[in-house]
Amino acid sequence: MSEHPRRVTSADVAELAGVSRATVSYVLNDTPRQTISPSTRTRVLDAAARLGYAPSAAARTLRTGRSDVVLCLLPDWPIGPEVGSMLGNLSAALARHGYTFVVHPGNREDRPIGEIWKAITPAAVIAYTEFTEGEIAAMRAAGVALVVGLFGHGRHQDRRELEVPQQLVGRRQAAHLAATGHGRIGYAYPDDERVRIFAEPRLAGVRAEYSDRGLRGPAVETVALDAVPASHAVRRWQSAGVTGICAYNDEVALAVLAGVRLLGLRAPADLAVIGVDDIAPARLAVPALTTVTTDQVAMAAYLSATVVAAINGRPAPDVPSADLIRLVHRESA
């Protein structure tokens, strides 16, 4: 006797439902232009559920020429609440389009990119780093829709870009500080090089907002997640006449607040601080942290629509930037 249970097949479903295998295939694949009665469709679906039948992904790939998998090549990022929320919402949004979302974290040194996508044969690949010309050509030749999630346009004209409006995040921060009377501001830059892809456009947004208002750009300091070095940055900002800080994210903002307290200063009286992400500790800080947050559900809907458009050769949708970023006003700024 075999040690492993036999895989349930479409023939088993057909036998239990009392229909042909072709009918099972038509129902489970929702094949158009087939006249199948509601009662027959219900019998097939009930039989498949009772048997725990799952169509073979390999067989589907052979039949259609591609899988229903969307592969996300995630860089060596710290997976914090915001990135986790982004991935969870994107997985749910793609599922509504009939696609399975698979995330592969790491870097190119761990395993060559070609080995990863060839092992899965995805319908599309999302990535947040540049590909070489050879990698792009290989994926195109295999019928993989490449969706590169860069923050800005890359040099390749034949690929899709995910215009994540990180600059708008910085603009929202800067606009709030400018509106509350802070003519000289600073920017708390993260000391983690892995998140530079987010930090640079956010800083660019802060600079652009103050430039548009005819105000001087931010004094930039790299801030570690430690109160003592953060206090040194606070001292330098004070010497430069800075009264408000845009932080890369809430964690960096909390480090700035810790540095303020260490020096016996107060926020916002001595230094106003605004973060990004609205993580739970931001609400518990003293003072509670003013921040900006992204509507991750709307972002996921936009990203999934962009992926589906790329797979089907349609134009990408516009970024819903007007409603994507909002201010959460608390006590720190």
Rank of each mutant, 00 (worst) to 15 (best):
66 R>G: 13
29 N>H: 14
319 V>Q: 05
266 R>A: 14
82 E>M: 14
59 A>W: 06
73 L>R: 07
291 T>E: 08
52 G>C: 14
240 A>G: 10
159 R>N: 10
265 L>V: 07
239 S>D: 11
296 Q>N: 10
31 T>A: 12
285 A>Q: 04
217 G>L: 08
91 S>E: 15
81 P>D: 13
297 V>G: 07
255 A>G: 07
145 A>K: 05
167 Q>R: 15
14 A>D: 00
69 V>P: 06
318 D>R: 13
323 D>I: 01
82 E>C: 01
302 Y>P: 06
148 V>E: 07
243 T>N: 02
291 T>M: 04
204 A>Q: 13
196 R>N: 08
201 P>L: 01
67 S>T: 13
227 A>L: 06
161 E>K: 03
150 L>W: 04
310 A>H: 02
149 G>H: 00
305 A>M: 04
213 R>P: 06
170 G>C: 06
179 A>Y: 09
109 E>G: 13
34 Q>M: 14
5 P>Y: 05
142 A>E: 08
233 A>V: 07
168 L>K: 05
108 R>L: 09
328 V>L: 12
292 V>P: 06
207 R>D: 01
232 H>N: 08
263 L>K: 04
175 A>D: 14
89 N>M: 08
289 L>H: 02
62 L>H: 11
202 R>L: 06
102 V>F: 13
165 P>K: 03
92 A>V: 08
308 V>M: 09
293 T>V: 14
31 T>H: 12
275 G>A: 13
168 L>E: 10
173 Q>R: 02
129 T>D: 15
55 P>Y: 01
9 T>Y: 14
325 I>T: 03
270 D>F: 08
239 S>H: 11
188 A>L: 12
124 A>S: 10
105 P>H: 03
312 N>V: 05
196 R>M: 05
273 V>F: 11
172 R>I: 11
327 L>R: 13
152 G>S: 06
306 T>S: 15
10 S>Q: 14
136 I>M: 12
265 L>R: 12
203 L>Y: 02
53 Y>T: 13
127 A>W: 11
215 L>E: 00
200 E>Y: 04
231 S>Y: 08
